[in-house]
Structures are given as C-alpha cells and as structure tokens.
Design a protein around this nucleic acid. Structure first.
Lengths: 221, 221
DNA sequence: TAGATTGTTAATCGATTAACAATC
DNA sequence: TAGATTGTTAATCGATTAACAATC
C-alpha cells in the first residue's frame, strides 16, 4: 500500500522557513514568540502558523506562546536534522562542485562521502577534500557503502538512468538538480532544484503585467 | 494600487514544466498532443492542463489537441523567453560562479554583463569570460548600465542591504540564492532558490513515515 | 457528417482563515 | 483571578476535477 503523507506539501514547504526564522530569533535572543508576532515576521496569518505546527503536536502554551529555542529544536527534529546522513554527489560539474563546497551542509549532518563524474578531466580532482572518482566506480561504491542521500547533478539525458542505478544501490533520497521529472519507486524521496525553471518563473513575473496588457488588447480586437 | 497577479502561483510554477516537456516532445518529433496524453506524461489531469493553458488563451483546437511546437512557442513567450536580458551576478562564491558557468542561460537570452564580489581573492578572476569586479563598483555600474536581472548570491547577512541597493539602481528582478526572505517594493520580481530549505524538505520526506510512527506512539501513551 | 477534443461552466475537494472554548 | 494565547472546530475561499456544450 502506497504511503500517503499526512501533511500537505504546502505545509512541508513552510517548515524550513519556520526553522530559518526561529534560528534567527534565537540568535537575536528572543525567548518567546506568539503566533501573531511570528506571522507578522513571516507574512503568514497567526491561524495558519498554529494549524501548521499542530500537524505535529502542541508545542505552544496557552497564554504564553511558543518558546523559541524549544520550537526551533522540535522543528529541527521534524525536518530530520538530528540525524547524520551519508551523502554522495553524482556529477561533479558546476552544480555538483558548488554543493560540495557549500560548507553549511557538512555542519548540519550532511556529510559528503564520495563524488563521481564521467569526465576524465574531473576524475582525481580534489573538491573540498573529496577526490572525484570515475563513474564506473559508482555501482561498486553503492554495494560497499550505506548511502542515504545522492545529489544528482548529471546532464538531463543521463538523469533517469543514473537515478535508477542509485535506487537499485539502496539510496533512500535523491536531491535532483537535473532538469527532469524523475520517476522513482515508492519509498524513495526526491526533491528538485530546477534552476532553469526558477529563472523562467522570475522572467514570467517580471513580464506579467505587460503580458496581460498585450493579451487583453488582442482579445478586444 | 498594488498589482495583483491574475494567475495563481500554482499555475505559474507549472509553466516552466510545460515548457520543458513540450520542448522534449518537439525534439522527439511529436507534432500534436492532447491534454489527455500530456497529462499522462506529466502526472497531471487533462482538465488541469486545459485550465492552466486557458489562463492565457485558447491555444488548442477542438478535435485535434495542441500543436506541440506552437504551444511550446506560446508558453515560451508567456515566460518571457523571447526577450534579451541583461544580468549581473552579485557575489562570486560557489553559487555565483556555478550560475555564471552554466552555459544554458546565455543561450536563452540571459546574458551575464558583470560580476561583483567583496573578496580581494576573487576580484579580477575570470569566470566564464567575465572579470569579477570589486563590490564598490556595483553602485556605479548600476548607474551607468541597464540591468534587468540580478543574481543575488551574497551571504545571508548582506542580502537585504544588497537587494536594496540593486532596487535603487533600477534592477527589475532578483534571483535570490541567499537563505533570506527579502522584502522588496511592488514591481520588483523575486524568485528564491533556497538550497538549504530544499535539502531540509528532502530530509523531512525521507523521515516522515518514521516520524509519525514515533509521534503516534507518544500520543497513545 | 461523425468523432474527437477543446474551452468553459459547475461540482468537489482541500487549504486557509476566522472564531472560540480550553487552559496556562 | 484576569488576561493572553493556544489548540481546534467551523466557515470561507481558492484550486482542482468533472461534465458537457461548442466546434474543429
């Protein structure tokens, strides 16, 4: 039976945002906060915040609000940030290397164990302390090591077949940077970073007003 | 009066996805497609596809479906991909450089005109044919050149103030990679690529089942 | 013309907001 | 205790799906 998430995507997408704001508040020395205040800060309604948080339990206290450090901790746990993850990067191009060099992830428990690429020019190169291995070694690595998360940053044309190999090798989650909608079996988590989609949305937004002026004008005539 | 988008965010987020799939179909030599078939391919209902497309006009034909190349072209126009954009990159760290090196954008009309960074180690470095300039030159550059889009890839702590300077300098759109929710005036478009949020969502999803088993167990007791 | 498939209106479903009783 | 603010139920709003008449 397919596992059906109990929490809507809309809520899940807001969780990291809560975490970010709470971390900032904690750093700023704020001890308690009401849903009202947090809502003003984040541009959400107080009601929505209380609903969101209550998907996971009652972490507040009537008459008081939420304890910032505690709520941050709880949401961190909900996000799975209290675990350690073994991460590999498949595809050591611009994006793969940028992810590897991003120091923050290591600190948060996402430790990069290995990197792979097809290009002979990249094989053997040291990226942030990890040597790039040839792609042929990927299958063997998966057989010999536990890998929780794979960063998939290969060209679009190879993304699906590489993902299949990762899944067969026991990878539980794929952070997908290839501009492709992967089809994966139940139980394997994915999240996409579609850079070009994001840029296209930006260019849509900057032109929307003008676009509808044109469309409306055409409809009249 | 604030400009209110006529198209919901849910629809806008699907537009680049349509564009991607139609481009693939065109490349594969598919001439026409029905909303039914496209829906199966994209995991959407036929009804939703027709509703989405009709936000912008009737691009199909009864009894026939949609002409792939034509619809792709129309959606490209809707996304503003028929324009040329002047882009600058502010912050030449890992992400800024990865974006600069990504060849696809240049081809799509997003031409990188300049790059800026505070770090003396980066100033003067050639990134994909563009020399990194010191951050002090940013204000002058904005005064002297038309800039459509700024890629904002500076540390979180400097993101808002840098964005303010960009807006003052006439930038119409910000592609924000800093893990911050910027506050910007009406009329300036933003789109965020929050990498760490995305990774946190992934880690949530891979742990959700287990999380609720724990939460449910705790509730019983 | 008959068949297919859109464009569009109506029905349903889910997410957000409002309201308020519970309780710290 | 009185005041504040949550947790939670009910009302509203918007997005998705279904249905079907229009039309190629």
């Amino acid at each position: 039976m397919a596992y059906k998430s109990r929490v809507s995507d809309a809520v899940v997408r807001r969780l990291p945002m809560y975490y970010r704001h709470l971390r900032e508040l904690e750093k700023a020395g704020v001890v308690r906060i009401s849903s009202q205040e947090l809502g003003e800060r984040m541009n959400l309604t107080a009601s929505q915040i209380r609903q969101d948080i209550n998907c996971f339990g009652g972490f507040g206290q009537q008459g008081y609000g939420y304890h910032v450090a505690n709520l941050k901790e709880r949401i961190g746990e909900i996000l799975g940030l209290n675990h350690q993850y073994h991460v590999i990067i498949v595809g050591a191009g611009n994006i793969g290397r940028a992810v590897a060099n991003y120091a923050g992830f290591e600190r948060e428990g996402f430790g990069i164990q290995a990197m792979f690429d097809v290009s002979p020019a990249l094989v053997g190169v040291d990226v942030h302390g990890t040597l790039v291995q040839p792609m042929e070694k990927l299958e063997g690595w998966l057989a010999a090591h536990k890998v929780d998360i794979a960063v998939l940053s290969v060209p679009a044309a190879y993304a699906q077949q590489t993902a299949d190999m990762l899944v067969k090798g026991g990878v539980r989650a794929i952070w997908n940077f290839a501009p492709v909608d992967l089809s994966l079996p139940e139980g394997v988590a994915v999240n996409n970073v579609h850079l070009s989609d994001s840029l296209h949305i930006l260019s849509y937004r900057m032109n929307e007003k003008e676009l509808f002026e044109t469309l409306d004008a055409n409809r009249k005539s």
